[in-house]
Nucleic acid binder design. Structure first.
Length: 366
DNA sequence: TCAGATCATCGTCAGGTGCG
DNA sequence: CGCACCTGACGATGATCTGA
């Protein structure tokens, strides 16, 4: 597993360089306490557990040696394995291997790395985004939403002064939608075309993604709500299987850029009754994800819709998690590359130092 | 210019891990 | 033990490169 490599590179079989590779020391790290060097050991970092440490100087197995790198001295127990390799046998190794046998978290690893680095490298902080400000919102589904699952176009009128932290109420008559805006949800999403209409009514795309854009960006931003994207069932990223007809995912972006997701079942009665749902932020969901709980689901169809909604929510969360994971992985790889650069630099400096000392020693003997 | 190769990105699934 | 989260693996898709 690639994810294990970096951790083992640091923890297993290599010099523990927690404090030796800060970026600030890059290029300027010179060993200071050379008089304390008993043996100079070059430990080759390896991703393979139990890989023997390659020892350049001649030392005896089971001998206490002192590794000195970038001013840090460390005692290392070295033993010979069955194949003539010299292997580190620190008492901590077993414990470390045990820890490393678990799947690592890029966040944890990077934080560990960062804690050993200079402050220049940013840690990946736990998401401390504020809890969703929206705790109790009444969403009203317009009666003209077609029960086939395909929305007709409709207008959204933003309240002149919407209450703080509340979604705008969707209402208004159906409006024919331009086909071009119904083609690609990815293009539709993020449209905040405030310049397009000066009126308080908005055209909203239907079929794939419906966005509720702010006419006055500042107005909504100050209320912590910028855009709302409604993803309809059966199209785009939401498959028909995942989202039965009449189920809607509402995604909106707050002023700070954090995304919020709401799943809203749209079961409009043939009579056109509007069903209201209470939107809340349950404790089981992470910050930023709120769940719309329909009141009084009893029929099997509604149960199926409920399970489909749950599935869609799970997929959405996993999608976000995958994105986060990839982001972390990239940062982690970058961090490792920086470490490699720093260590190469230090290795160079140490080799140079050794060379100079050897020359000095030879000259003294002569 | 175009077809194929290569690469990057993304969504989804499955399985491991941590935690209450 | 169940749930939520994390992450490797896989396939799909689009962008870019390359040689004919």
């Amino acid at each position: 597993m690639p994810g294990f490599g970096g951790k083992q590179l640091e923890m297993d079989g290599s010099i523990d360089d927690k404090s030796e590779d800060s970026p600030s020391s890059s290029g300027s790290s010179q060993p200071q306490n050379l008089s304390t060097v008993v043996h100079t050991i070059t430990a080759v970092p390896t991703a393979i557990p139990n890989q023997p440490v390659q020892v350049q100087s001649v030392i005896q197995p089971t001998q206490q040696s002192v590794i000195q790198a970038a001013g840090q001295i460390q005692t290392v127990q070295v033993e010979e394995d069955g194949e003539g390799h010299l292997v580190r046998t620190d008492p901590d190794i077993e414990k470390r291997r045990e820890i490393l046998s678990r799947r690592p978290s890029y966040r944890k690893i990077l934080n560990e790395l960062s804690s050993a680095e200079a402050p220049g490298i940013a840690k990946i902080e736990e998401d401390k985004e504020e809890e969703a400000a929206i705790t109790s919102i009444q969403t009203t589904i317009p009666s003209y939403v077609q029960t086939s699952g395909q929305y007709g176009g409709y207008c959204i009128k933003e309240p002149t002064e919407p209450p703080s932290h509340q979604l705008p109420i969707i209402y208004g008559p159906p409006v024919p939608l331009p086909p071009a805006r119904m083609q690609d949800s990815s293009k539709v999403r993020g449209i905040g075309d405030a310049s397009q209409d000066s009126s308080s009514y908005k055209k909203v795309t239907a079929g794939q993604t419906i966005q509720i854009a702010a006419a006055n960006q500042n107005e909504l931003t100050t209320q912590g709500l910028q855009t709302i994207t409604m993803t309809n069932a059966g199209q785009g990223a939401v498959t028909a299987a995942a989202m039965p007809a009449g189920t809607t995912i509402v995604q909106y972006t707050q002023g700070d850029g954090s995304q919020q997701f709401v799943t809203v079942p749209v079961s409009i009665s043939p009579a056109g009754e509007v069903q209201a749902y209470q939107i809340r932020a349950p404790s089981s969901l992470p910050a930023g994800v709120v769940m719309a709980t329909p009141t009084g689901i009893t029929s099997p169809q509604q149960l199926a819709e409920e399970s489909a909604r749950k599935r869609e929510l799970r997929l959405m969360k996993n999608r976000v998690a995958a994105r986060e994971c990839r982001k972390k992985k990239k940062e982690y790889v970058k961090c490792l590359e920086n470490r490699v650069a720093v260590l190469e630099q230090q290795n160079k400096a140490l080799i140079e130092e050794l060379k100079q000392l050897k020359d000095l020693y030879c000259h003294k003997n002569e």
